[in-house]
Design a protein around this nucleic acid. Structure first.
Length: 481
RNA sequence: CGGGGUGUAGCGCAGCCUGGUAGCGCACUUGCUUUGGGAGCAAGGGGUCGCCGGUUCGAAUCCGGCCGCCCCGACCA
């Protein structure tokens, strides 16, 4: 790999400086750029195309799960935002306020939404009267603002793109079922489409969402051994319903409060894609989310220029029905330049078409995941291409799964845990007594938090890795983004 | 928000110590030649040196303040 390295002039080495590498990939692959707003970025078309692919696939799956789209205001009146105590306590430090219009002070200030539980709950209170109105399961695609202290593109930005789903149910059981159902929708999406294996689990009391009864999340492990939360699904109980007055008349003639859920995933998924699959040459996109799945690079020397271009156009046309194909028609760049650029952009499959291929009746196929080059018969390519894309998809998932497995340490010795976490080697799976003191001390001493208590607990046995008391649960610990 | 670094052309950097007309490589424009892993030659264009203030005859350079970005921590999707 040493010789190929010299071609990568644009980005830092992933192994040598993961953070710099990450920022380089974001900028140089044309995903996004820093904007003149503190902590905010501007999406470039290629980066936004990835978000569009995520949105359309997730949206399709939401609708199949009975979720309807709606939209709610960006601004939330202070009095409404302040209604839920835990909630306000969790978000107050990072919400911006709108207090003035022109030169006039507003009679009541607004917060710019950091999340929409309160405003949506307020509307639920107007819209829900009877148990016949339930369940109500709505989602909005929008952006929210949280004034974070330290920001990084796609991982933590002041304004970020996401979707937030909110539901109201007749019973706790219904709401809890929805919570788990949406977690499963996310899990399948993240694993099947983004090719990112995740650990699904419940958050500890301390780590859960402000205002939730239970928070569940998907935790991915990225290339530098840190955990990244990919999606969350909350059972909110009746706390918001009580303070916002979301009541319904049940069939027993009783007026009752609804049970609620909320669930969300953000543009952080793009950060996860970059950090899970990327390599020293840049981005590597799983075919199912790649805006361009196949790029055709013609190699057209003067003597056979017309012939090659005609063949390339015919190829692009033929493949268009089976894949998202892009023909690189730029004549001002050399083939070698294009190879490097499309690799940096993470396009899963590259087809090279030059005089040699024409003479052989072939196309040179290069996979982004393995960088393997292989001549393939031109005839029949349209038939074999979808399978090749699926193969790339599957191999990326398999590779990420191996990485997750080989960076997950089942430990019962605290000293060893400290060592592993200090190296940021990955997940530590260990027993936990359930007490916050142990969780807090581990965090203090290792920088790691409980990412989740996996749904699949197996048989809980053994002791708390910190205090030695009998373990109440198995927990995944890691340093996290 | 603490500690560290950094800010000079689109990108990467030199110049700053020792004040005196702002430079290099890549990219960009034009022309010709080129095309199987970042093409060559030639001629060009482009910078209120992050911002504000101070010192000085004169500031990219010295001094003070502020801001952005990056890293390491503490808090969150």
């Amino acid at each position: 790999m040493a010789e190929s390295k010299e071609f990568v002039q644009e980005i830092h080495s992933r192994s040598e400086d993961f953070s710099e590498w990450y920022v380089d990939v974001v900028l140089k692959a044309g995903l996004a750029d820093y904007a003149p707003v503190r902590g905010c970025m501007a999406y470039k078309p290629y980066g936004y195309a990835i978000w569009e692919a995520i949105m359309s696939e997730l949206d399709r799956r939401f609708k199949a799960a009975g979720v309807q789209n709606a939209y709610f205001p960006l601004l939330i009146p202070q009095s409404i935002f302040m209604k839920e105590a835990e909630h306000i306590e969790g978000f107050a430090p990072e919400v911006p306020w709108v207090t003035r219009v022109g030169q006039e002070e507003l009679p009541e200030p607004y917060v710019i939404r950091p999340t929409s539980e309160t405003i949506i709950g307020t509307m639920f209170a107007k819209w829900i009267e009877s148990y016949r109105d339930l369940p109500m399961v709505l989602n909005q695609w929008c952006s929210v603002v949280r004034w974070e202290k330290a920001t990084r593109p796609f991982l933590r930005t002041t304004e970020f793109l996401w979707q937030e789903g909110h539901s109201a149910h007749r019973t706790e059981a219904d709401a809890r079922e929805r919570t788990m159902r949406m977690l499963e929708v996310y899990r399948r999406f993240v694993e099947d489409v983004l090719a990112i294996p995740v650990i699904a689990g419940r958050k500890s009391e301390h780590e859960k969402f402000a205002g939730a009864v239970d928070t569940f999340s998907l935790e991915a492990l990225v290339g530098d051994g840190r955990a990244l939360q990919a999606a969350t699904s909350h059972y909110l109980g009746q706390g918001f319903a009580e303070v916002l007055g979301i009541k319904f008349l049940d069939d027993d003639g009783q007026l009752k409060f609804v049970h609620q859920t909320s669930f969300g995933a953000s543009h952080r998924l793009i950060g996860a894609l970059i950090m899970v699959h990327g390599d020293d040459r840049g981005l590597v996109l799983p075919p199912r989310v790649a805006p361009v799945q196949v790029v055709i690079v013609p190699i057209a020397p003067q003597a056979r220029r017309q012939e090659v271009w005609a063949a390339a156009r015919a190829l692009a046309e033929e493949l268009a029905p089976v894949a998202r194909v892009h023909l690189d028609e730029r004549e001002e760049y050399s083939p070698g330049w294009k190879f490097n650029e499309w690799e940096l952009k993470g396009v899963p499959v590259r087809l090279e078409l030059g005089p040699r291929d024409l003479d052989q009746g072939e196309v040179t196929v290069v996979r982004r995941d393995s960088l393997q080059k292989q001549p393939v018969k031109r005839a029949g390519l349209a038939q074999s291409l979808p399978a090749l894309l699926e193969e790339v998809q599957a191999s990326l998932f398999a590779r990420a799964k191996d990485f997750l497995a080989s960076h997950t340490y089942h430990l019962d010795d605290y000293a060893e845990m400290k060592r592993v976490l200090e190296d940021r080697a990955g997940f530590v799976v260990a027993g936990w007594c359930g007490k916050h003191e142990c969780e807090a001390e581990i965090k203090e001493e290792t920088g790691a938090t409980i990412r989740c208590l996996p749904l699949d607990q197996g048989t809980v046995s053994g002791k708390c890795i910190k205090c030695g008391q009998p373990a109440q649960a198995t927990a995944y610990f890691a340093r996290a983004y």
